[in-house]
């Protein structure tokens, strides 16, 4: 493991993404990526009494599923990293309280999944662990309740708004294996360009993606064309366009191989999701379901996954604060 340039980690003995698992809600199950997910839920409560309990159950089952799929005995998993959007990350800690694996709760808003993946890879390569689990979840209803309005309130969503993905993605990073390998990671800096509109998260987070991408290319000496796919977490349609145009001003053309999980997961026209999907589960389920599948099938050989987070809460919004963004990048190659 070594540091390249200003902020990139290069893994000398690249850890393997051993296995992933994904569970999504009913709306995502009607989206274009449905066939790639392991489990499609029929209702948002999943037999629970509250949205929060339902989200806990989703992340719990996603974690159980990835352990089962990997074929590893549960006690061979050394540590786990997990996080979500609810206050003090209760979905993760309540969902995983019976897991019996040393647990780190992490918060990176919607960038949590890749944050966990980077930390897991560092632990695995350092020799401190053989297998490390990472997971993230979000739920449309619990997120609306916490960040916006009651579900039954009759308000209109502006066209810039995004739709929180219901679901959870989980993965296991292993120090030995046959790939796909985590080769580089570029943890992002907090970038705040002063956007205050909580209904335009993509625009608030896009500058952090540009910052991380520039650092990644500079540190590694790579170009956008090195990757088969550059995929951001949840910028949606507006954020995606902003990244393409801003990268252009720095002399990088990312357009041909760049896409966003929030754009991929829903059908904008049929599902009326406005600017696309968002939430921790957006990038978590798209990577665990779709992207990991494509890597395994060798349709993609090199991808750069950049999860994006908006580091605000409802109090900061009400106090008129702007929305700081963060973007963590990880290269996964076969």
């Amino acid at each position: 493991m070594q540091k390249l340039g200003t902020q990139t980690i290069k893994f000398d003995r690249p850890p393997t993404v051993l296995e992933t698992a994904s569970i999504v809600g009913p709306k995502e199950a009607q989206g274009p990526l449905a066939k790639y997910f392991d489990m499609l839920l029929e209702d948002e409560f999943w037999g629970e009494k509250t949205w929060e309990k339902a989200e806990s159950k989703i992340i719990k089952q996603a974690v159980n599923l990835v352990i089962t799929k990997s074929g590893l005995p549960a006690d061979s998993i050394d540590y786990c990293f997990a996080g979500d959007l609810l206050n003090q990350c209760i979905s993760s800690s309540f969902g995983l309280r019976e897991l019996n694996i040393p647990y780190f709760g992490i918060f990176g808003a919607c960038s949590t999944f890749v944050e966990g993946m980077i930390l897991s890879s560092i632990l695995a390569e350092s020799g401190a662990a053989n297998n490390v689990l990472f997971a993230a979840s979000s739920h449309f209803c619990s997120a609306e309740k916490q960040f916006r309005f009651p579900l039954e309130l009759g308000n209109q969503r502006p066209p810039t708004s995004q739709w929180t993905v219901t679901g959870s993605g989980a993965g296991i990073i292993s120090s030995s294996g046959t790939g796909p390998f985590v080769t580089h990671a570029t943890p992002g800096k907090i970038v705040d360009k002063g956007i205050k509109d909580a209904n335009n998260m993509g625009a608030a987070m896009a500058p952090s993606v540009v910052d991380t991408l520039l650092a990644h290319f500079k540190d590694t000496g790579r170009n956008p064309s090195y990757y088969d796919a550059i995929i951001t977490g949840d910028l949606g349609y507006i954020g995606k366009e902003i990244v393409i145009e801003m990268m252009q001003t720095y002399g990088y053309n990312v357009k041909p191989n760049y896409n966003d999980c929030g754009v991929l997961i829903f059908d904008k026209e049929k599902q009326d999701t406005h600017s696309g999907g968002s939430g921790c589960a957006c990038c978590a389920t798209v990577f665990s379901g779709y992207l990991f599948h494509e890597l395994k099938e060798k349709k993609y050989k090199k991808i750069l996954l950049i999860a994006t987070g908006a580091l605000m809460n409802s109090t900061s919004s009400q106090q008129g604060e702007s929305i700081p963004g963060i973007a963590h990048a990880i290269s996964v190659e076969i």
Partner: peptide
């Protein structure tokens, strides 16, 4: 009554 997920 119970709140339900918005369909759209």
């Amino acid at each position: 009554a119970k709140p339900k997920m918005k369909k759209q």
